[in-house]
């Protein structure tokens, strides 16, 4: 098999936690693999993260350039194209950066592409068997990936159990000189921070969280009454915010808030990985959903198959009567 490279995102000189998951994924892909980490960036923070990664990887390639100070995927792609062999197997996270980088990179390398991969099930010749999910996680699929000409693979965050920090004592290879022309037609300007809302759902021990199953804006009040009776706060999944029914600050998930409640009541939420990615600290999860196949039932502690519009008012009444 061709050499495996792991693209490691980092911030303020610290590698993203996904580094440990990508290392685990690489081991699952090929247990004999020699995995090389790649970090791009500039200045001290790049040196710092490269140094740290030598404990996890035998070899760490660093590419430094002022234009790489912010990880603009268009610039990173050009640098990788100039530095890596085109038959490389490249792993990256399936997050907002990976989605920006991975598809285009696979075209430039004329290699295979697989995104949001949750497992590897071995190789036969130049065919790698991968597992991914479709239709919002309701159903999984096995796929054959032709890696004869390399591959760019995006790993779902949280899908591979992270490895422990190691003591590899790896070496750093500086490839900054090979980066070549990395000018692009997209220029990073600035980060605009998310607005702070009226309630801070991250502070609440109990969340009554509603999803698309709430069906109508008018029904939000019903969830609010339940939350009030429970002494809880209302949070939600993304479609509720997209519809402007609740403020963005109430959204749980990778593109919303990260919450750490004790109890999480998921009402009419299917359980997409982007939603579940915002729930940390292993809370007690109760899911009510009318679809017995909803993926949320695989991660919840307690499940109820039913219509939330019927359950919510009755539950509120019973709690008030206690």
């Amino acid at each position: 098999m061709a050499q495996i490279f792991a693209y490691i995102p980092h911030k303020d000189g610290v590698a993203d936690d996904i580094a440990y998951e990508i290392q685990a994924a690489a081991g699952k892909l090929d247990s004999n693999a020699q995995v090389t980490a790649i970090v791009t960036g500039s200045g001290d923070t790049l040196d710092k993260v490269a140094g740290h990664l030598t404990s996890l990887f035998k070899e760490v390639i660093k590419i430094g350039h002022d234009d790489l100070a912010y990880p603009n995927a268009e610039v990173v792609r050009k640098a990788l194209c100039n530095v890596l062999p085109s038959d490389a197997i490249i792993l990256a996270p399936h997050n907002t950066f990976g989605m920006d980088l991975v598809p285009g990179l696979s075209i430039k390398f004329d290699s295979a592409c697989a995104s949001d991969v949750i497992d590897f099930e071995g190789t036969e010749g130049a065919t790698l068997k991968i597992v991914r999910q479709v239709l919002g996680g309701i159903i999984s699929t096995h796929n054959d990936l032709d890696i004869s000409n390399g591959a760019v693979i995006a790993i779902r965050p949280g899908a591979f159990a992270p490895v422990e920090d190691g003591s590899e004592g790896g070496t750093i290879v500086d490839k900054s000189g090979d980066a070549g022309d990395i000018s692009t037609k997209r220029r990073f300007l600035e980060i605009v921070e998310a607005e702070v809302g009226d309630v801070d759902i991250t502070k609440s021990d109990v969340l009554v969280s509603i999803g698309r199953g709430i069906e109508e804006e008018e029904n939000i009040g019903v969830a609010q009454e339940l939350a009030e009776a429970m002494g809880a706060v209302v949070s939600c999944s993304r479609p509720i915010v997209d519809a402007k029914w609740l403020e963005k600050s109430r959204q749980v998930g990778t593109s919303g808030q990260t919450v750490k409640p004790k109890v999480y009541l998921a009402l009419g939420i299917s359980g997409s990985f982007q939603h579940m990615g915002g729930i940390k600290g292993d809370p007690f999860i109760i899911a009510i959903n009318k679809n017995a196949n909803a993926p949320i039932f695989q991660v919840a502690d307690v499940g109820i198959i039913g219509d939330i519009l019927e359950f919510m008012p009755e539950l509120t009444e019973k709690i008030k009567d206690l």
């Binding site: 907002t96 990073f188 600035e190 980060i191 605009v192 921070e193 919303g256």
Partner: peptide
């Protein structure tokens, strides 16, 4: 671009 945590990454693109 919407990035993690609901933050927004502003870009100029040709």
């Amino acid at each position: 671009r919407e990035i993690e945590g609901g933050n927004k990454e502003m870009n100029e693109i040709e």
